[in-house]
Structures are given as structure tokens and as C-alpha cells.
Design a protein around this nucleic acid. Structure first.
Lengths: 206, 206, 206, 206
DNA sequence: TATGAATGAGAGTTCATTCAT
DNA sequence: CATGAATGAACTCTCATTCAT
């Protein structure tokens, strides 16, 4: 933490964007050094090898991710309000760190998914907070368990970004620009409320 | 077309699984030949180059994907029933072709996503059928437009598979085994109905 | 000789032009088969291997070359006339068989010039006839020996074709078109006569 | 520039001789590295690719060639003397750089001769100086234009080297050894003078 | 800290050639 | 005669990584 040399940071930044753009295998250390404007060997001086550099990039995201969501969740409010804020924070975080979901997904599929644990840490906060927000409302098991809602909510957010770019043409405007993102947030709020409503009705009915 | 030389098929199959496991850049032609049990040069004999081979793999999925969903959608029934069947077909298709979403996602992010058109073709059927199933129920624009539900639904399905493996430990059992998949389908059905209900209430209320 | 299969001839022709255009190493058997419109394996059926095919191509030139010059030389006339005809025939032959000098030159330099004998056979006729035409006029040894004139004459012809294409731009018109070739012939005639004159004066003076 | 890393020079040298011996296509980077005694990858480290390395080899010749001829031409003397010196310098240069004409010729024929411009630069000095030496003596157009003499002179030099090796057996001694070269120079001097004489007579007679 | 030089391994691709049919 | 399939060797070039300075 001391005061990480400015060059080391430039390398990390370059690695970040490149890994996000082209994936681990599609990015060469030469590319990273070039974009960072440093000598190739320096990359190995600061980060032992390509793999470790990748790890650092991902880890940084995990930390920031955790912090961003924590703030959103810990504020006061009803369940609906808390989940709205959580969704908003999630959307905002990914909008600002487009590489993050790409890196995560790669991490899962690529290279035999050897580091499941690492990935789990990455999504753990959202899972945990979703579960806490739905505590007492959803059953512990079965198709309405909180974890299913976690998968649905996070999928609703992530998929927007994944396919957002691709759908641009048929969307009319760019869905990932500010208005598109605001619209998506509105959809997510509606989604949260519709599901809470459904859960409530179920509780009342049974 | 008839029998397309058994070796060529073996190569295609090997490429399929490897591209799915390690991505385009993470898979070498040597690997493919090895897994197919053929000479490396034979890969180039049947498929002109690595890129073309990848294309073939992806294209085959598109076709099967389209067919699988079409059958599910075109049968009779209420909107709810049709969407349930669509979700089920989608889940089943991906459960049987785990590589497909990985390949698609890679196609989008990797290498600048130059072939947006190809990807669009890949998700087009689901988008189209979702839109047709919600016709008259959802507005054409805004946060409740059909396309938002498309992104939500497909995200709810895809994300289950993406994170399913990773969540295994905290899930108790393997979520991607038959019982887990059945449970997810039940969740998706509930999801569809809760959203249709929400849409109906909105129509009635306004 | 029987009646060489038409396909075999097509292969020979294709090989001829391709070897001339791109050289031995720059030409692949695939290229040859493609241009000949036949299966690659057929090339090996008719000509045992690439090297042998090349040999055949070169040999055919030798024969035609020999015949073309012989006719020109054997007709009656003064030394000047005979040499004029020889030059003309040489120019005409190469104009019609542009590949020939290229193949010859490659044969000399490429692959260690292992087949000097073959090349010698190729240029032998011109050497021999030049020597016979100058018999009694030039000394047997020294800088005015017939062989020097052979090198000068053949160089004057070959170099015209070698650099002709390259000089096109600074030449105004294409030097290898009909008028350019006629002009070159005129130059060669003048050259022959000037040298004969020089040789005569020498004889008279000494 | 100063010392340009000794290994880089060794590579250039190896490339030079190999390209000269076997041509561009006939020379592999492995060969070059081997002869230079360095790692194959180092060739690409210093010279970006095979083509660029070839270019460097050729270019170096152009420069030396130009310098060698310039010195010979610019000294004082009659036309005859200047042309003699030019011929001598040309012969000497090629005798010392046997690869040069081979590389040039290949450059013309191989690979469609796409780089005519480069080749032109290579022969430009000789063309220009021949033209200047014959200025006022030869007509601007027609079969006695200076450019025809350029082709004749350069052909008389180049052809000597091209066929020199091949003729060795029938020559008695090696024509490319020192005495043979001296004899050729004598021939060329005689040639130049005979042609100047012929041109003079023509001027007087007409 | 920082870098130019160096390398072994492996990438995708083409090659001449063989062989069963 | 003719061909599609098959292969081992070689091709150019890039890779992550090391090391002396």
C-alpha cells in the first residue's frame, strides 16, 4: 500500500483495460507494457508474472465492488428501498467498470475454473446482501429461496451490459448511454417491487 | 452433407468443447487435433483456419438453438404457458450445450466484438419470441418494454448457468444437476407469472 | 512422346508459367495443380516430384531454344548477316518465352548451382554458334576471344529483358512491346557491326 | 548506429550470403539464425520480419554500390577514360559483392516484382552516369540512345558473372579468378572504345 | 529501478508427398 | 487415370520469461 510507484499503477491500469478488452489469453505482456509506456521487463519486476498481474487486477475490483455495494446496502430504509439502492449501486459500479463482469466470467470459464474460491469472494457481497434483504420473506429452500433471486437480480443487471452493446442497433439509441442506464434502473426497480409483491401475496395466500 | 467424413466431425466436436472450455485464444489447434485424435494438418484440411472452425462451431449452435426454441414457442397455449415453455426450452438447451453461452459471450467481448451481427443472430429468436409473447401487454417503449423483459429473462437463465458451478459449495448440492435445474425452472415459472401479474395490475390500475 | 495426355500438358504449362513468375521455391504444387485445373496428386502421378517437374520444364526450353537458334544460324550469308539473324532469333525466342532466362538464372544461383552441366547445355548452342561465326576473326585467347563476345552479346540481349520491365517508367513506353523490341534489335545489329568493324580494323592494323 | 550490436551484424551478414545463395524463398529464418549462430527469435528481435531483413540487406548494397560508382565516375578524364573507370568499378564491386546482382534479379522476377521502384534505385546510378558520359555523342531516341548502351554495358558486366561460374569448365581456368576478371576488364575497355569509335564514325559520316 | 538482449516453447499455417480407393 | 484424405516436417512469427547491466 505504501505509495505504489506510479509506473506500477500505470501497468495495472493498462492490464485492466486490456484484459477486459481481449481476455487473458488475448492480451500479451508486450501489449500491456506498450499501453503503459514502460519496458516489458518492468511488468515482471512489479508483478511476478502475467497470471499474478491478472489476479491483482481482479482483486482490486473485488475490493472496490464490495465497498460500493456495502455503502448502498447499509443505509436505512424498507426492503424495497434497500434493494433498489443495491440494484442502482450494482448497475453504477458495472457501468463504471465495464471490464469487471468480463473478467469475472472469464475467470469462471477459462482455465478450468480453477479458482472458484476467488470468484465466490467476488460475488459474495451481492449474494449475502440479497439474502439479508429477503430474510424472513423468502423460504430457505426451493425455487423461491433467496439465492434464486440473487441469480435473477444479478443476471438482470449483468445481462443488460453483456447484450446491451450488441442490441444497440435494434434498440434505437445506445442502451449503455446515460438515458438507457436510467431506464434499466427503472426496470429493475419495477422488477424488485413486482417480485416482492408476488412474495407477499404468496405469504398472505398460504 | 450426408456423412461429412467422420474425422471432420470429430474435429468439430473437439473444437466445440475446447473453445467452450478455454475460449478462442486459450485453445490451440494442436489441442483440438489432439483431442480429436487426428493430425494437426487435417484440421486445416477440413476447416481452412482456426477462425473459420470457430465460426462453424458457433453457427451450428445458432441453428440448433433456433430450432429448439421455435418448437417450444409455436405450440398453443396462454401467454403464461408459452413463456413457461420458452424458459424451459432455453434452460434445457443450455443445459445440454453448456459451451453455447460461453462462446456467445466471448464472441461479444473478445477481439473487439467485431461480429456483432453474428451474435445478434444468435440471440434473435429468444428476443423475437419474448417480444411476441408480451405483445399487447407491455408498452413499446420505456422500462417495461418487452426488450427489458427479454434481458431479464435471458439473464435469469444464463446467470444460473454462469454462476451455478461457482455457487455449488454454498448451494449444498450441485445446482446444475437435474434436481437443481428443475428447481430453477420452477423459479423461472414463478418469475414469469409474478411479472405478468405485475403487468396486469399495472394495466388495471392505470 | 506417344501423345502426352492433355492433362499432363496442362500441368507442364502451368508449372512453366508459375516457375517463371515466382521461382522454384516460390511456387507450390498446389498452385500448379490449381492453375492447371487438376488434382494435386495428379501432378505427382505424371511427374514424380516437384524437382523433376521443374527439370522437365527447363529441358523443354533447351530443346526449343536449340532448334530456334539453329534455324537462324544455318542459313547462308555473311558473318554480319548470320550474327544479325542469331541476335534476332535470340531476342524473338526470349520475347516469346519470358520464363526461360529467369528459370536459367535461378538454376545457376539457386540450390548451390548443383546442375551446372544442365545449364551449360542450355546456353551451349549460342556459345557454339557465336564461336563459329567469329572463327578466324577473333583470337582463341585473351580479351577478344569469341567467348567474351558471346558473354557480351547474350548479356546485351538478356539484360534488355531483365531490366526492360523495370525501366518502363523512365523509358516512356513499354520497352518490351513490339516497337521496343524492334528498336533493341536495331541496336544489336549496330552493336554487332561496330564490333566486327573494330575487329577488322585491329586485324588490318596489326 | 555506432556498433549496432555485433549479433545484429552477424545476422545481417548471414542473411546476405544466404539470400544470395538460395533466394528469398529458398532461405529460412532458421537457416539465417543458424549460420549467424544466434537464436531464431533474435532475428525477429533485431529485424521485424524476414521481408524487412531482406530489404535491409538489399538497401545496404544500394548505398555501397552508389558510392563505389560515384567515386569512379567523378574523377577527371576523357569520355573513354571515364567509361573505362566506370566499367572497372562496376566489375570490382560485383566481384566483391557476388550476392548483389542475384538479389537484384530476384527482386525483379520474384513475387510479382512489386517493388520496381526499389530496384530502379539500385541500378539508377549506372544508368545516369552512362547517360551523362554519352551526352552529346548519342541521340536522345532510337536504337543508339544512351539507355541502350547502358543495357549493353551492364549486360556485358553482369552476364560475365552470371555465366562465368557455369562456363568454368570450358574456359580452362576459373573466369572469376583475378586473371579472368582482368581479362574481362580488358574486353570491356575494348568494347567501350569500339562503340565510341562506331558512334564517332556515324557522326562524321552522316 | 529500469532496460536491452536473449531464449525455448509453441503458436497458426503451408508444404511436398503418399496412399487407398 | 484420377482423387480425397492424410501426414510429418518445416515454415514465419509471437509468447512469457530471464538476466546482466
Amino acid at each position: 500500500m505504501k505509495k505504489d510507484n506510479e509506473r506500477a499503477k500505470r501497468i495495472l491500469k493498462a492490464a485492466d483495460s486490456l484484459f477486459g478488452e481481449a481476455g487473458f489469453d488475448g492480451t500479451s505482456v508486450r501489449d500491456i507494457a506498450q499501453r503503459a509506456g514502460v519496458n516489458k521487463a518492468l511488468v515482471f519486476y512489479y508483478y511476478d508474472n502475467k497470471e499474478a498481474l491478472f489476479e491483482r487486477v481482479v482483486q482490486r475490483y473485488y475490493e472496490e465492488h464490495q465497498i460500493a455495494l456495502q455503502a448502498a446496502f447499509e443505509a436505512e430504509g424498507s426492503n424495497s428501498e434497500r434493494l433498489h439502492r443495491l440494484m442502482d449501486a450494482y448497475v453504477d459500479f458495472i457501468a463504471e467498470h465495464r471490464s469487471f463482469p468480463r473478467l469475472l466470467q472469464r475467470r469462471i470459464t477459462e482455465r478450468g475454473g480453477a479458482d472458484v474460491a476467488l470468484v465466490q469472494r467476488g460475488i459474495a457481497p451481492l449474494l449475502e446482501w440479497t439474502e439479508r434483504a429477503l430474510e424472513g420473506i423468502t423460504p430457505a429452500e426451493g425455487p423461491l429461496a433467496a439465492r434464486h433471486f440473487f441469480l435473477t437480480f444479478s443476471g438482470a443487471v449483468l445481462n443488460f451490459f453483456t447484450y446491451g452493446e450488441v442490441l444497440s442497433p435494434s434498440w434505437g439509441s445506445n442502451p449503455l448511454a446515460a438515458p438507457g442506464i436510467a431506464e434499466r434502473k427503472a426496470h429493475l426497480h419495477w422488477l424488485v417491487d413486482a417480485l416482492l409483491e408476488g412474495l407477499n401475496r404468496r405469504g398472505a395466500g398460504s
